[in-house]
Lab assay of single mutants.
Amino acid sequence: DETGKFLVLALYDYQEKSPREVTMKKGDILTLLNSTNKDWWKVEVNGRQGFVPAAYVKFL
């Protein structure tokens, strides 16, 4: 149950560059965990948590 969690859509592919980031593919649906930083949002994708560039995702 994803109640209270926001979902975001990956607009572009992103390859993680550090262990704190996660890789996503364009079209992936991600669970948004934290968006307090304007540049990097914490998400969960494929069972992994990490950061992606905020400009690469949008709210569903």
Rank of each mutant, 00 (worst) to 15 (best):
P53M: 02
A54H: 04
V8S: 03
V8R: 01
A54R: 11
E16R: 11
T23A: 07
T36P: 04
L7D: 05
G4C: 13
G27L: 03
R20M: 13
W40D: 01
K42G: 06
L7C: 10
K17M: 13
T23I: 03
I29Q: 05
A10C: 10
N34I: 07
F6D: 11
V45F: 14
L11Q: 07
N37R: 08
K5F: 12
V43E: 00
K26R: 11
T31A: 08
V52C: 03
N34P: 03
T3M: 12
E21H: 06
Q15G: 07
S18M: 07
F51L: 08
Y14R: 02
V57G: 00
E21V: 05
V8T: 04
Y12S: 10
V8C: 11
D13N: 07
L7G: 03
G47M: 05
L32M: 05
S18K: 07
K25P: 01
K17G: 09
D1S: 14
G47T: 05
N46F: 07
S35Q: 11
F59T: 09
M24W: 01
Y14I: 01
E16Y: 04
E21F: 06
L11Y: 04
V57Q: 00
V22S: 02
L11M: 12
E21N: 05
E16N: 07
V52S: 00
K38L: 08
S18H: 11
W41M: 05
D39L: 14
L33Q: 03
D28C: 05
N37A: 08
F59G: 07
L60C: 10
L30W: 01
S35I: 10
L7V: 09
L33Y: 04
D39H: 14
F59Y: 13
N37E: 11
L30E: 01
N34G: 07
V45W: 06
D39Q: 11
M24N: 00
G50W: 02
M24Y: 02
L30I: 08
Y14K: 01
G27D: 06
R20Y: 14
Y14G: 01
G50I: 03
G50E: 01
Q15Y: 15
W40Q: 03
V43Y: 00
G27R: 02
L33I: 15
R20Q: 14
V52P: 00
K25I: 08
Q15F: 14
E21K: 04
A10Q: 01
R20T: 12
Q15L: 13
A55Y: 10
V43R: 00
T31E: 09
G47K: 05
L11N: 04
K25H: 10
E44A: 09
T36K: 13
S18I: 04
Y56H: 08
T31M: 12
W40A: 02
R20G: 15
E2Y: 04
G50A: 02
G27W: 04
E16H: 08
D13Q: 03
L7M: 11
F6T: 14
V57N: 00
K58T: 15
A55P: 07
N34M: 07
L30Q: 01
K42Y: 15
K17S: 12
Q49W: 06
A10D: 00
W41R: 02
T3K: 14
K38I: 10
V8K: 01
A54E: 03
A55T: 12
F6G: 12
T31R: 14
V22N: 04
R20H: 15
V8E: 01
Q15W: 11
D13I: 02
S18R: 08
D1W: 08
F6H: 14
T23C: 05
V43Q: 00
V45G: 07
N37M: 08
L32S: 02
A55C: 13
V57A: 02
D28A: 07
L33P: 00
F59R: 11
F6Y: 12
W41E: 00
V43M: 02
F51S: 03
K25Q: 09
P19F: 09
K25W: 08
D1M: 13
V52M: 02
V52A: 03
W40C: 06
I29Y: 06
P19M: 09
E21P: 04
D28W: 09
V8W: 07
L11P: 00
R48Y: 06
N37L: 09
L32W: 03
L32D: 00
Y14E: 01
P19K: 09
W41F: 10
N37H: 13
K17R: 12
K38C: 10
T31W: 11
K38A: 11
R48N: 07
K26P: 03
Y56F: 14
L33M: 07
V57R: 00
G47F: 05
V45I: 15
P53L: 03
P19N: 11
K42R: 12
E44C: 09
T36W: 10
F51P: 00
T23W: 04
D13C: 04
W41S: 03
Q15H: 13
K25E: 06
G27H: 04
R48H: 07
V8D: 00
E2K: 13
K5Q: 15
D1N: 13
N37W: 07
F59D: 08
Y12T: 09
K58A: 14
L9E: 13
E21A: 05
E44Q: 10
Q49A: 11
Y14V: 01
T23M: 04
K58V: 15
S18Q: 08
P19D: 14
F6M: 15
W41L: 08
K5E: 11
F51Y: 15
K26H: 06
T36E: 14
V45A: 13
E2M: 13
K25T: 09
K42F: 15
A54T: 06
F6S: 12
V45L: 15
G50M: 04
G4Y: 10
D28Y: 04
F59I: 15
L30P: 01
W40K: 02
Q49M: 10
V57H: 00
V8P: 01
G27T: 02
M24F: 09
F59K: 11
V52L: 02
P19A: 12
F6E: 10
E21R: 04
W40V: 03
V8L: 15
L60H: 08
K58W: 08
V8I: 09
K25R: 14
D1E: 13
S35K: 12
L33T: 04
E44L: 08
V52D: 00
A54Q: 05
P53A: 02
P53S: 02
E16D: 04
L60G: 05
N37P: 04
V8A: 10
S18F: 07
V22F: 09
R20D: 14
A10H: 02
A54K: 07
K42N: 06
V45N: 11
V52I: 09
D39G: 08
D39T: 12
V45D: 04
V43I: 08
E16L: 07
G47Y: 05
E21L: 05
K42A: 09
K5A: 12
R48A: 07
D1I: 13
P19S: 13
D39P: 02
L60E: 07
D1H: 15
L30G: 08
A10I: 02
R48S: 06
A10Y: 03
N46A: 10
E2S: 14
Y56C: 08
E44K: 07
A55G: 13
T23D: 04
V57L: 15
K42P: 01
P53F: 02
A55M: 11
L9G: 03
G4T: 13
D13H: 05
W41I: 08
G50T: 01
M24R: 00
F59C: 14
T31L: 15
D1G: 14
E21D: 06
K58L: 11
T31D: 05
L60T: 08
V45S: 12
D13Y: 04
S35M: 14
F51E: 04
N34R: 06
F6K: 14
K17T: 13
V22T: 06
D39F: 14
N37S: 09
T23P: 07
M24S: 01
T31S: 09
E44N: 05
V45K: 13
R48E: 06
T3L: 14
R48F: 06
V57F: 05
P53C: 03
L32N: 00
W40E: 05
R48C: 05
S35Y: 11
G4M: 12
Q15P: 06
V57E: 00
A10K: 01
Q49G: 06
G47E: 06
N46S: 09
K17Q: 15
N46I: 04
E16F: 05
E2V: 14
G4Q: 14
Q15E: 15
K26M: 08
K58P: 01
K26S: 07
K26T: 07
A55F: 09
K25V: 10
T36R: 10
Q49S: 11
R48I: 09
P19Q: 09
L9A: 06
K17H: 08
L7F: 14
L11C: 08
M24P: 00
Y14T: 01
L11S: 04
